[in-house]
């Protein structure tokens, strides 16, 4: 609530306030430089607000202890525009990362990763490396990695930024299907066609 964020006295975000409820599908939109990515980063404690308070799961994360940040991030899936996949690991290993980090046993990892890869239709490519996949496939791997831990919230920053319309609609369908299962979806995008595809609540951040 009433969040401000500045870099060197230059305010990127001024007095930003919004609520997102459990199970919602929300688009956060606005022109380039409006602060969409910064807002998303603040939600997963990658950035700290200059002023104001951010409540996630009824907890003020603007004053979160650094040691608690990894545990917050395990509850929130994050999908990046540039996918952020580990190029020296296979699709399966990339998706399994989140579960390995949480200390889940090998058998459960195998079961959950297989399920999620089937859901995003990438099971056939589980042993391939990210660089051998197309942009859309890489984004689906990133979504699978974010969702495999069954997070309460999934944040996607420009998830279809580099993808064509057909691939983008596949991605939106996947996100919608997981939203129907109860995962709260927050999608940051400036793409109007994507918003039309999604048909959901829109939070518009205007520049300055």
């Amino acid at each position: 609530m009433h969040v401000y964020k500045s870099y060197d006295k230059n305010y990127i975000i001024r007095d930003l306030s919004f609520n997102i409820y459990k199970g919602e599908f929300v688009f956060v939109t606005g022109p380039s430089g409006a602060g969409k990515t910064t807002t998303m980063k603040m939600v997963i404690a990658m950035e700290k607000p200059t002023h104001g308070q951010i409540n996630v799961f009824n907890e003020d994360i603007s004053a979160i202890h650094p040691k608690q940040i990894p545990f917050l991030r395990r509850k929130i899936g994050f999908v990046f525009q540039d996918f952020k996949l580990l190029v020296n690991r296979t699709v399966f290993q990339n998706v399994a990362l989140g579960l390995e980090i949480s200390g889940v046993s090998g058998s459960i990892i195998a079961k959950n990763v297989t399920e999620i890869l089937k859901a995003v239709e990438l099971y056939q490519k589980k042993d391939e490396y990210p660089l051998s996949l197309s942009g859309g496939e890489q984004q689906r791997v990133a979504i699978a990695r974010a969702l495999v831990q069954n997070p309460s919230v999934l944040i996607a920053d420009e998830p279809t930024g580099n993808l064509d319309f057909e691939t983008a609609s596949i991605i939106i369908d996947i996100l919608k299907s997981f939203n129907n299962k109860g995962t709260t979806m927050i999608i940051a995008t400036h793409d109007k066609t994507l918003i039309e595809l999604g048909r959901a609540r829109v939070i518009d951040i205007t520049k300055n």
């Binding site: 997963i44 990894p70 545990f71 991030r73 996949l85 580990l86 980090i101 949480s102 831990q149």
Partner: peptide, 15 residues
């Protein structure tokens, strides 16, 4: 880069 990714998906420093 890999370390940054691991941290973003919830890896602790010890991990």
């Amino acid at each position: 880069n890999d370390i940054e990714i691991l941290k973003l998906i919830g890896a602790t420093n010890n991990y």
